[in-house]
Amino acid sequence: MPDRPNDYPSVEELIAGQHGVSLHIECDRQTGERARKAVQEAYRGMRCAYYLETDKGFDRDTPLSYLRFFSRLLGSSVTAEEALAHFGLKDLARTRIGKLAPEQRALLNFARLTLAEPEVVFCERPLIELGPDARTIVLQWMGSASDEGCVFITVNEPLREALLMPGNAWWEEDGRLFPAQVDDDPTDGPVFAGDEVRVCKVQARSGSSTLFFDPREIDFIESMNRQNYVSVRGELYPTPAKLDELEVDLARFGFFRCHRSYIVNVQRVAKVERFTRNSFNLTLSDAAHTSLPLAKGRAEEMRATLGWK
């Protein structure tokens, strides 16, 4: 396993030790709760805005009246109308919050966060309810706010999604926090060998069974908490194969190492987006429209390897 020189024994020490840095922590709910209290303590005196999973809004309010209430409450220079327009909720301004879909409620909460003109934003699972379009809006907002100095601390989000947000991703194991491996300077990668056909199956486990997947079935492969997983039709199956081996074996099937922890089936890539200077996002065409990080150093290689203009 690679060195982890900067791990922290607790989430409190991580937040104190990485003060002023955006952090995205894959952890359980209890650690997330402790992280919230640690953020409150570490950033006391700064303008902090919180978005918890339990924040549902007033059911009988409309998005417009709800945001006007917060705008007045916070003495914000951002108007409710501006916040609604920014998050694509203008057409729903007079719909009751109780009738909004979960994704729309999540966007409303992000609109509420902007009214605080925050220096620090704490979110629990910020991307969980968001579809591809809404995710783009939110990640772009996070990217631009981050560029302006806003610190984002998110918890409970899977590492794959944590890596999409501006800042550093961390994961928890047995109470300790480890940095997600990021490699922006890859060495020479494997070369895509065209449409050469050779028998190749990827071994995986499901309970007591051993499965062999045709590479064409696989959407992506991820490394998470020292275990590699193959994603097939929305299900993750643990595989004993090493990521480096899979990268070599699958290159000729159109797979690409988009991140130190991810190999993606390029045939499944539907969209490549750039949210900040250092943040790329691959949206897949699988059922869940999964988003995967694309490391900055690998973006150019991907473009060259695949012959994209």
């Binding site: 303008r47 339990t54 924040d55 917060f70 605080a116």
Partner: peptide, 16 residues
């Protein structure tokens, strides 16, 4: 009702 729905929590966590 607001407490049950978590509506007031978002207000309480502001600096107000």
């Amino acid at each position: 009702e607001e407490r049950e729905q978590g509506a007031w929590g978002a207000v309480a966590r502001t600096s107000a």
